[in-house]
Amino acid sequence: MNDLLCDSIVAIDRVTRRFGATAALDRVSLGVPRGSVFGLVGENGAGKTTLIKHVMGLFKPQEGSVRVFGLDPVADPVGVLARVGYLSEDRDLPEWMRIWELLRYLRPFYPTWDDSLAEELLVRFELDVNAQIKTLSQGQRARTALLSALAYRPELLVLDEPSTGLDPIVRRDILTAIIRTIADEGRTVLFSSHLLEEVERVSDRVAMMSQGRIVLDGPLDEIKESHRRVTLRFDEPQSISPYPSFRFEGNGDGREWTGVYDGSIEILAERVGSLGGRIVSANPISLDEIFVARVERSKADRLSAKKETSLDREL
């Protein structure tokens, strides 16, 4: 286990999870530093929820290990879950209960339950305690679920697609505010989302997932700093990409190539120069664009690796 994992509040070390022939998680390693807001992004089916379920101890790793607060959530669910607030993707709530009954029911589970905070959140979320859960709108359900995850001041808040069902105002004002408040209090937030704009707004650190693998993991600022949309121009037309590993795409005549680049600009300039070209522009890009580029690159790498393997077999 590396140093980052050792210092992390959530340490996921080479976890693999297969559903039949499909690898939902493929040797995933991840560390969530204490006090950070950690955004887990990926397309549908990338493995985000599966990873979160491992953190919650709902899934037992088939390979590798998961530690939360240094504890194994499977071996010690009580020790871990008492300190974790969890908002599941499907907002799993008992339909027949009223909101006050839900809070009354949940209170004995958590020694740190804070009634005053629960009341404060009720007001903030504009929820009626006498409302029956089955009568709530999707947004109200999401807020109720969020309330039940926050009212005991968990050290770690795990949110699986928290924006689902929330309108833009609640998403921007309340959710963001809550996440930031928790982080400011030194607590940790791990949340998954496919809304990159939201992740970009609140996260300190981001991990991008694709097909069960982490394709990028690091502090948000560093990620954004390191990725540039680069345009290259050559005197002579180039028949192949000048830098295949970065998937530059050429225009019609092969003189101009554009792609997302996250290496050293100096090295790129040197390489391009040796081919008789130059860097025309290197502009910052959004997280959205970074994500698309990294996922495509990852898929291409995997495809070529697969081809190589099958070629080796044939030989």
Binding site: V80, P94, Y110
Partner: peptide, 17 residues
């Protein structure tokens, strides 16, 4: 929920300490 969506033990139970 007697309507049948959840019977006996729902996933939420297992996320409780």
């Amino acid at each position: 929920d007697f309507k049948g969506r959840r019977v006996s033990f729902h996933s939420g139970s297992f996320t409780r300490p």
